[in-house]
Design a protein around this nucleic acid. Structure first.
Lengths: 221, 221
DNA sequence: CAACACCCTAAACACTCGTTCAACCCCGCA
DNA sequence: TGCGGGGTTGAACGAGTGTTTAGGGTGTTG
């Protein structure tokens, strides 16, 4: 911790990120104040209100993630990004904060997810262009769906059996990855169904959708 | 509403289900009491504590769902079940309650999801036996993954832009279904990738997994 | 009729929350 | 030396929470 060379304001903000990441946004101002080593009044003096404190946290976390996304290199996708960030343990509290934010909703969650959807769309487009990924009849919808799906699966695992140590985001993410790697790879390479009847029925039902992009050859079963 | 022919205890319980479904579990005992048309003290008199009230709600909701699952016939899967239940509008508050429960965690959420995982596993086994679904190297893991994935995608949509009318679970579920039908059908019929390299790399890396149950022939590409 | 048991209410209690405020310390500056 | 003035404190306020408790009614029973 290089906490003494920070502004008091920044120290409070970082403490708040830690506290909110650990216990959600219901933790009180007094807890944050104690974590930062200051009095409760000072927190409100610097941020106006608890809402202001949270907004400052949101802005800071989002900024740091945007800034350091390139360090967290590798494939697109929510887990990949969070995993890479959490492995750099100085970012672990930020990851916990993001997970909490995704759990309880709010503007940071929306911004973060929209950001990921963009990345995913670009990543998918690359893959399609390179021939490694199949094209979709609605690329935007697919990108959003895959992103929501990735994050959602993670969130369900998180809420259903929350890790005993809320600080160790890395352990949780690793465990999650181990449990889901095989099914997700199977699904992504071969799909689930053996024929196209359900998809065709749907396409017939909705009257065949935009079909923009490449209306590519359906790969023979 | 046939509310006057119920025990006061049942009336309070149903009011609590509605309130919790609408506003989450943070809504106060006084709100529930007002919704039920009784005094706040009576709520605690009947259920001992707020925790007791919630447990009674959990038990009741789970019981009703178990009981009426056959009415809500059709394919397995979280959305299918919830959708079918919500369409019967007398169950709409229950569905909202379940969604809240999934959002905030708790024993009902766990029970509900475990229940769904079982159903999914049976449903998948049927499909595999009938030849309409591809087998997996770890059927249990796949069933759990697909269930968490389905519910998770739903929850992300729900937390990211919550519906303006928290009572109308049907509208939300319909909209969700429309947005995801195409991507999910595409993914389930053809997968995402054009070759098996990533899956093979993983299988090589983990040294080919348990493969218990049906150590079936990997379907020839 | 008296007495008991039960359903129910209204008020109060104890606590936590976000927020406010008067005062204090300590710094630079004239 | 006196004078701000921002950083900081700790106590207090008011509204919210879950919970407790004393006490009305009301019906049933002896």
């Amino acid at each position: 911790m290089r906490s003494e060379d920070l502004t008091t304001r920044a120290r409070i903000r970082d403490a708040a990120v830690r506290c909110f990441g650990r216990g959600g946004f219901r933790v009180g101002v007094r807890v944050v104040a104690k974590e930062a080593g200051v009095s409760p009044g000072l927190v409100l003096h610097h941020f106006g209100s608890k809402q202001g404190l949270r907004e400052a946290c949101d802005a800071h976390v989002l900024g740091v993630i945007r800034e350091h996304k390139r360090e967290a290199v590798g494939g697109a996708g929510a887990q990949a990004l969070l995993m890479a960030l959490a492995s750099l343990d100085r970012f672990a509290p930020l990851v916990a904060y993001v997970l909490r934010s995704l759990q309880e909703g709010g503007s940071l969650a929306r911004a973060f997810v929209d950001h990921l959807v963009e990345d995913t769309e670009a990543y998918l487009a690359e893959g399609v262009a390179a021939g490694t990924l199949r094209p979709s009849r609605d690329e935007a919808a697919r990108a959003r769906y895959l992103t929501h799906m990735g994050i959602g699966t993670l969130m369900v695992d998180l809420t259903l059996d929350p890790p005993e140590d809320p600080d160790d985001a890395t352990a949780f993410l690793t465990r999650f990855y181990e449990r889901t790697a095989l099914p997700v790879l199977e699904l992504f390479t071969d799909g689930l169904m053996t024929d196209r009847s359900m998809l065709d029925a749907y396409l017939l039902y909705v009257g065949d959708p935009p079909a923009e992009g490449t209306d590519a050859d359906p790969p023979a079963a």
